[in-house]
Design a protein around this nucleic acid. Sequence first.
RNA 1: GGAGGGGUGGGUGAGUGGUUUAAACCACCAGACUGUAAAUCUGGCGCUCGAAAGGGCUUCGCAGGUUCGAAUCCUGCCCCCUCCA
Length: 438
Amino acid sequence: MPGQPLPRERGDALLDDCTLNSLLRRGVSEIIVEQEFVELLRSGKSLRLKMGFDPSRPDIHLGHVVGLRKLRRLQELGHKVILIVGDWTAQIGDPSGESVTRPMLTHQEVMANAESYMTQFFKIVDRDRTETILQSEWFGKFNLATVIDLTRRFTLAQFLERDDFARRYQARRPIAITEFLYPLLQAYDSVAIRSDVEFGGTDQKFNLLVGRDLQSMMGQRPQQCFLMPLLVGTDGVQKMSKSLGNYVAVDDAPKEMFGKVMSIGDGLMLNYFDLLTDAPPEEIEEMRRATSEGSVNPMELKKRLAAEITAQFHPAKAVEEARRHFERTVQGREAPEEAPEVRYEVLGEVCVVRSDGVHGEEARREAPIQGGLVATADLIWAAGLAKSKSEAKRLLAQSAVEIDEARHTGASVALRNGAVIRVGRRRYARLVEMDRRP
RNA sequence: GGAGGGGUGGGUGAGUGGUUUAAACCACCAGACUGUAAAUCUGGCGCUCGAAAGGGCUUCGCAGGUUCGAAUCCUGCCCCCUCCA
């Protein structure tokens, strides 16, 4: 139940062995230092849990959710999340992505991105137990002297230990000097907010450790580093990331979310159950057995997974709709209950089509009409179902086009108000003549 | 400052004058199959004109040049890497 405020009582009593065990094991890659972390939890003190984000990438996907769920659990135990808006680090670019130099963001853009990030963030994490701070609160006061003081504390050799840097250096790829500043700034954040525990994916290990070191250099108790496994993306190979296009966004519409989860390989399913749902371990074990025995259809399990994940971000009704939509269009190969509408009007020899297009932008395109028939490829392109006319022709040749549930390969077709065009498995458009509803 | 190496399609990466819209692999798209948008197999994967056959244009960091013809040769510029100082 996302967004629901939590009961206020502190949770020493809640910290039984079972809770603790799941906290330390499930969806965790490594805790540095685990023993200290457990002691902190048991101390009854409300901990300051640090989580940073880069406002140049305001999108949250399931890969982030693994960690956010963990934060939520800890909030339930009475701890507090400190969310840092990385308005300075964003200007450097996290070296782990091997990113190209990024354009500097204006303050306005940063705030807009932060806003959008937070509405997604608070779908999982409790807003009332979160404090949000901008890095500029402390870095705004920095000057060259402070920066020099910071850089003096670490050596090149130490930084080249970092996996990303080491690999790039070995591969003779460029590393900008500013990139060395990234871990330093992130580390200083920990000092500034007196972090008790910092959270991040395993690729953040180095940055988190620098924070730990810097805190102790500056006379603070070093933070614990809580590292979470990187979620494998829908391609089943690489980590989930927006730039690789293998992600399921927290903001995805229910149908899309459900479908994307269904598209993961069967082998990835149990991993997702483990990291992204509350399914008890015994049940996951049971699923593992059932699938390897072949006594259950993996598709049924995956539907359950898709439903459970979608339900974390959408109302139950929408989840049911998404499931029906999937069963209808993908399994049943039928037209969806409602295809997106594309408006058209006939003006003499051309058919003018207005659509939002497959790529989002509003477009007004024309397809020629001859003897009452429209050129099919042009129509598909005009309706935004193909990127170019060439692509539309290719799709036609590959018999990927259906009009009113009948395969269509002809070069031209009669225009009909209310006709449903389908291209491939997922692209649909319903033709609606302007000022007339079917 | 000096010496050398390199920049190829969304990615990795072949290709050193013509058969190159550029191998191969990945990603992606489509079809077949499947009670999954899994897996597997097959095909496709610059734009444009054409019903089609086929034609035109555009592409190998950027800009010029040599040549009947250039990703490939020459010149200048930009960027990256290595070594020396």
